[in-house]
């Protein structure tokens, strides 16, 4: 693709879309290059003393720090745990770094910390080390979490493993977290809640039932369009999905229609795409639907036998169009 990186960091570099990819490829990956990193999965899969581990790190900068359905602490633990789960790992240990800004009420910090412990307990992960720094600022918080989990030897899950005829399952409706944060920033009151959640139950359900899972990805920054494109590229396949089959939250759809946002590029924090073999798809869907946060799960498409990295959407009128990775920031339009 004929694009080049800007001279300075701009907000679009954090969008999760094409600008983020450019930043990572041009600045980091070519220097830090190694085989594990090059896989660009949600977590690195490494082997220590012949034991397979998933190892991940993630930073959280959301503003406001409290929002409908959660806060930055809950988000940090869920997001980090989900990155381990997506590799088929069992979450084990986590470290947390806090950057606290001058003026932050201790009571707010306590509430954030309490939420973290609650989520960690639920996900079966222990917070075993931490760090704090205080900087000048506006009373905000930045949190970094790193975590490890164990992976069974036979588990091989990753973005590069989608195969022709595989079935694509989406664990629920799109865009809630993104819409919640925008509403909070815009001072709009409505019933939209962040879907922020750890997907422990559904992932463990799939693994314990020996479902033939090829890929799992949580639908975060850049949205469904971006992560499906990443999978299509890593696996060198065309993924076909059907608009009518994609679960939508009516409130999010109405909100995004008004602002000119596209739910396909909006972020979630408690949804995943799971690509499984055709034969195991009905059972996998059943397990996800019966797990916490999976009640709206649906089969949304399949992996075709065309080996061109592309994502095609069949629209509700029967036309076909390609779904694209997010360009720039996913911002509201004027009209």
């Amino acid at each position: 693709m004929n694009v080049h990186i800007e001279d300075k960091i701009i907000m679009a570099h954090g969008s999760g879309g094409i600008s983020t990819k450019l930043l990572v490829d041009e600045v980091f990956a070519k220097v830090f290059h190694n085989e594990t990193l090059a896989r660009m999965d949600d977590a690195a899969v490494v082997t220590v003393d012949s034991k397979k581990l998933a190892f991940t790190t993630d930073s959280f900068v959301v503003k406001p720090i409290f929002f409908q359905g959660g806060n930055i602490g809950k988000l940090a633990v869920c997001g980090t745990v989900n990155d381990l789960l997506m590799m088929g790992a069992t979450p084990k240990y986590m470290t947390v770094g806090f950057v606290l800004m001058e003026g932050l009420p201790i009571a707010s910090l306590q509430e954030v910390v309490n939420a973290m412990q609650l989520e960690a307990t639920a996900a079966g992960i222990q917070i075993v080390a931490g760090d704090t720094k205080v900087i000048e600022g506006d009373g905000g918080i930045i949190i970094n979490c790193s975590a490890i989990g164990t992976i069974e030897d036979e588990t091989i899950i990753g973005a590069a493993h989608a195969k022709p005829d595989d079935v694509v399952i989406l664990s629920g409706t799109l865009g809630e977290h993104h819409a919640t944060i925008l509403c909070a920033r815009m001072g709009i009151q409505n019933d939209i809640h962040s879907d922020c959640a750890s997907l422990t139950e559904m992932v463990q359900g799939l693994l314990q039932n020996n479902i033939d899972v090829h890929v799992m990805r949580d639908v975060t920054r850049g949205g469904l369009s971006t992560i499906l494109n990443e999978i299509a590229t890593a696996s060198h396949v065309t993924i076909e999905i059907t608009e009518d089959d994609i679960p939508m939250n009516a409130d999010v759809k109405a909100f995004s229609d008004i602002l000119g946002l596209d739910p396909f590029t909006m972020g979630n924090e408690g949804k995943m795409v799971c690509i499984v073999s055709q034969s195991d798809a009905p059972k996998a869907l059943d397990i996800i639907k019966n797990s916490a946060f999976g009640e709206n799960a649906a089969i949304i498409g399949r992996v075709s036998d065309i080996n061109i990295p592309k994502v095609l959407l069949k629209t509700r009128f029967g036309a076909s169009r390609s779904l694209e990775i997010l360009f720039g920031e996913g911002l509201p339009r004027i009209c």
Partner: peptide
């Protein structure tokens, strides 16, 4: 509005100018 941020002028967009210290805020 947000969708103006990446429109380029003769040398810079709002996004790039912001990184240069220009005070540009996105409104809803």
């Amino acid at each position: 509005f947000g969708d103006m941020l990446k429109v380029t002028g003769s040398t810079q967009s709002f996004s790039e100018a912001k990184a240069d210290g220009a005070k540009v805020e996105m409104m809803y």
